[in-house]
Design a protein around this nucleic acid. Structure first.
Lengths: 223, 223
DNA sequence: GAATGTGAACTCCTTCACAGCA
DNA sequence: TGCTGTGAAGGAGTTCACATTC
């Protein structure tokens, strides 16, 4: 038995991927100086149903008050803690094409302790260039830089054919969380967390949904 | 009973979101001049299990040969057809910040009939600027341009607070498929297909998976 | 009275085991 | 014999209904 201390065991992965959405919805209420919300209000802001929200939150323990609702500040703290967002998460981006440069500068990445701290590319003609505050480093420097800066998350924004090599280099350097934008299935050792974002696939799915035969369909990770 | 002619009814949405991955895996084999693959080989390339692949393909009808495998060319044609990729899909990108510009130029978007044909932004200081081959148009031009170019898919790459207005404008102009990068839940009428890509959420989930208590976990849309 | 928390039902997806066919 | 195709079993996620608590 591993940890009676941790009240956060076995959270379903579907729930985990909605927690950040709830956190953002809470921030929205906080900026409006709302201090208390019902599951109905919070769910509407997050784009889910109230029962879904309550079931999800129940996995973190009871933090609402029956007949009243949730305290915005308290629930925010609870979610922040559950997601591990009360520390810093240094990020490295590998691949300085259009997408990689945009990600390096993307303001949505610079929230909640995530900070892009290192940039890498394979192409000698761009190494040394500045993107935002950072110099593009060579792949040869990756191991040292990752260790020195304590990089926790590696973002792969290379073409498909170099993504596996990059993943291997990141894992070899000690990175154990990867966000992959290359359209390829990465082979990774046990214990390395990976999320893939596949932009072309999203378009393909939309194309399918919009075919004449299936007008009216509304499937997928929609809204 | 609805349509014995169409062999493509009621494909589970989980299957639909894997079909593009299979198609890409098939392209990979085709470039190596492989003409026949087993479900095991194709599944390995796609990063799924063989039984999953076979079950998914079974929703499209039987296109393999027992004891032999699948014909790469034939299955490619079948998937291309099922996904509706044998036509052109004009795309518009709204929001010309870092991410929008990268998406406008992203080569992964320029595959299989998807072509970025129009760019829009709200900010007068960038309207008229060229990004790639295209001039940034104003939001006021959106309705006309969408109609004239027959835009089928709208990509929203604006900040969260303008995303709903943009979505309304796109839908009002006749767009019925939206790819949303803004971190907000869009309210859309029935019949409008939407997929959301939330970059900050992906980082949050990775942070959760990498917390000390849950080393070893390997959840999510991983690999 | 009002809104949360949760067992149970239900739906959807994945995996298994094997029948069916070249 | 070898590999596909698929009914059935198993597992995961969502929704319902309602007991519970302030």
């Amino acid at each position: 038995m591993v940890g009676t201390l941790a009240p956060r065991r076995d959270i379903p992965s579907a729930t985990v991927s909605r927690l950040p959405v709830y956190l953002r919805a809470l921030h929205e209420f906080a900026t409006r100086d709302v201090t208390r919300v019902s599951s109905e209000e919070l769910a509407a802001q997050a784009g889910v149903r109230p029962t879904q929200l309550r079931k999800d939150l129940s996995h973190l323990g009871s933090h609402g008050v029956r007949g009243v609702g949730y305290d915005v500040g308290r629930l925010t703290a609870e979610l922040t803690n559950a997601l591990g967002l009360n520390r810093s998460w240094p990020v490295a981006v590998v691949g300085m094409g259009n997408l990689g440069r945009a990600l390096a500068a993307y303001s949505g990445f610079a929230t909640e302790g995530f900070h892009v701290e290192a940039l890498f590319d394979h192409d000698p003609s761009v190494i040394g260039d500045l993107v935002g505050r950072h110099r593009i480093a060579s792949m040869g420097e990756l191991t040292d830089v990752v260790a020195r800066l304590g990089i926790a998350i590696g973002v792969i924004a290379t073409p498909a054919n170099s993504a596996q090599d990059v993943a291997d280099a990141l894992v070899g350097a000690g990175v154990r969380a990867i966000l992959n934008f290359a359209p390829v299935a990465l082979a990774l050792p046990e214990g390395v967390a990976c999320r893939s974002v596949d932009l072309a696939t999203e378009l393909h799915v939309l194309a399918f949904l919009r075919q004449p035969e299936r007008v009216g369909a509304d499937v997928g990770r929609g809204q």
